[in-house]
Design a protein around this nucleic acid. Sequence first.
DNA 1: TAGGTGACGCGGT
DNA 2: CACCGCGCCACCT
Length: 122
Amino acid sequence: MEKNFDFYERMKVVGAYIPYGKVVTYGQLALLCQKPINARQAGFALRKNKAGKGFPAHRVVNASGYLSGAGAFDLPGQQKRMLMDEGVRVSMENRVDLRIYGWKNTMEDAYFFKELFAIKNV
DNA sequence: TAGGTGACGCGGT
DNA sequence: CACCGCGCCACCT
């Protein structure tokens, strides 16, 4: 079994719940995966496609709302276009307003995923 | 094995 | 607002 296997499997699970038209930060993903200190690994996972083909990578931005992973998409401006197609406003500086488009998580959400991981054994 | 890297985040200035 | 320093750690030379 490869290292950090659970984290990537958990990312796949969480990815399926990221709402259309909303964005999530790397830190949020790590937190929901029960490994809050792994924000960098969330980015690594996406860059290396460890979270699966179906993961909505375009909905992931950094804590400042900046599209820090835009350069890793196949085409220039692809992430921005995909977000705008979902109704998310992206500034000229490749940033989104987290107060408006940020996926709001609660303690209950984190608990929900914790239980889900237990059920799925990941 | 040691050192470097980075789709990160938080404080401080 | 913009930097900057630092802690972090799975990966990758």
